[in-house]
Design a protein around this nucleic acid. Sequence first.
DNA 1: AGCACGCCGACT
DNA 2: GTCGGCGTGCTC
Length: 748
Amino acid sequence: MFYHALASISNNYQYIVSMEKKYVQILLPKPFEVPFQYEVPENVTVELGDVVEVPFGRKYSFGVVWSFEAQNIDPAKVKKMVRRVDTPAFTSAFRKFIAWVSNYNVAPLGSVLNMAISVNAALELIKLKTGYVLGDVDVKQLTAKRKLVVEVLRGVNQPLTVQDIAMRASVSDAVVRAMIGKDMLQEQEIDFVEGFVPEFSVQDNTAFVLSDEQKEAADVLISKVTDAKNSTTLLDGVTGSGKTEVYFEAIAQALTDGKQVLILLPEITLTTQLMARFYDRFGFMPTNWHSGLTPAQRREGWREIARGEARLIVGARSALMLPYPELGLIVVDEEHEAAFKQEDGVVYHGRDMAVARGFMENIPVILASASPSLETVFNVQNGKYDCLQLPNRFGVATLPDTSVVDMRLEKLGARHWLSARMKEELTLNLDNKHQSLLYLNRRGYAPLTLCRTCGHRFQCPTCTAWLVLHKPPYGHGYLQCHHCGHRESAPKTCPKCDSDTLAPCGPGVERLQEEVAEAFPHARIAMMTSDTIGNLERAQKTVSAIENGEVDIIIGTQMIAKGYNFPKLTFVGVVDADLGLEGGDLRAAERTYQLLHQVAGRAGRYELKGRALFQTYMPDSIVMQALLEHDRDQFNEKELQRRAYSSVPPYSRMAALIISGKTEKEVYALAKQLAACAPMDRGANPKIRVLGPAPAPMLLLRNNYRYRMLIMAKREVNIQAAIRDWISHVKVPSGMKVKVDVDPYSFM
DNA sequence: AGCACGCCGACT
DNA sequence: GTCGGCGTGCTC
């Protein structure tokens, strides 16, 4: 004890910081809470926000100049920074945003910076490329393909790379290389021009004429863009009300004002068709940003964004974390989508971070949705967000007639899931040659397989989950875990007792297909699930078959709820409307309402009147009643009342702690240790409460045992500060993890 | 996050 | 005797 005290005293002397040497604090894109100190070489000047390269450990790292306040560090340890990287400095608004994201989500500052840097290659020295210009050639003597090459090079009057020439001339690179070999083309290095901004003009291709209602909303948004101040506006418009066209007007204004515009979409919505729509409207291709980009696309995209050359960026949530120098507007489309929540690495909600960034950058933010999240509705009610409504459907489409089947009164045979009423509706549509859609949010054939002799159930070896039986139309059946992807072939006999009494239990879409085929042997059926849809090409085929009326009944999972419009579809049958309420987490009702509303909306989008039928065991629930009456506001009102009554978000703050490790024993021990020093108010009306630890609903996930704790606090409590303080008191042993999830969406 | 250092088991 | 497992601690 005594020796330790002595050692710490001797280590604690004040280092004298040399007056001549300049020091900077540089934040590194690694999981550290604080920046590191470096010496600035003589004759080098750096500004706050500059991107620099520094030695770190025995490698080099990029980093960002974070402050000039020298720390008391042993001068012998301090290294010299290497160079300033030739990219625009991170703005002060962006640096504030990074710090805010780190603080709000209880994530290390450096980890947040890592998301912003995201592509090391973008900062590497730009390699000079070898280009070619036209040499001495006698055009008359050339082959047709070589003439094309000559034309291309005459047209541009600047050196191009081999690939570039080949692409522009529509010849193979062999043609170009052969010409180089014959000295017809001459080598010339391609210069990189800093700050090069391509010629760019906003086209006003408004083929779409706005209605008065749309015009009014668009004008409000345009004036918010011209004001160039922070605001958050909910653009609340039912499906088909032309929300996109309305926010396009605001985008056009921001682009004309010379600002960068960011549009955030849930990952799944990012399609080439949508890009084409932006192209048609603005006359140039937007810059794409999502997880599917190739390294080269990422590198180029990052550079263009950071230099301000990319003007319109359409991306997934991660696009929010990039260093835009001139951001003027953020649009979050499908604001209510849970896909905006990032669950791995730094946990954050893209929509909420977008609102925060709008505040830091002092620019307007537009949240667009046909069914806004309750958080957003709440923020509109308490005046934090503005709201613009587009209540009318454009064109002639009307809402479907909606009804329910009370499944408690149905007497269905074993292995049957379609009620008499459901079959009647399907028959009616078959007779009228209209299309029907059966919706069941369950992939595969059966969610559980058990042995009738010994009771054995097939379970995932690495997760607390049953294996789902899949029976493809050709090939062998297999059992799969939908959480980790584990897959094994389905055996004929029980692996435990060897009897051939294996029984699939419950319905999946594949099994539903069997029932439909049996009941309607002449119906043409199409499956639309992530397992059966295959690649993009096959998906396109299925879609066009449906559009051409070659399909009578579509059977699908959640994937059909988004994006597809089938003109001949007039009936939607929901096989199990209660499925989404399972687990009963905070947002189960909200999610179920939104999804079912969206699915029902697939029926009758054109001149034909649509019908929707829900099979449910809870016909009196708030969800079912609101669906029947097409009363979204009523649902929001009742659901908000319920949340206020039980003091859950948005009326309180919530965060989750997920403790994980290799054995249940050690995980439980650590969770107990955390519980022992949890920040809790005793008393009648506590400001902060901690629930748990409880084993996660999926105790085992990918071979990791997980326990959860839930922190509930009043809105005025700084829950992040409480959590930071809390977990700093507990040492997490190696091999174990404590993940903080502020505003959790997943409770698994 | 990487990476090295360090201390224990099965092998040429 | 050595190669290599991954636990622990450090990086300005």
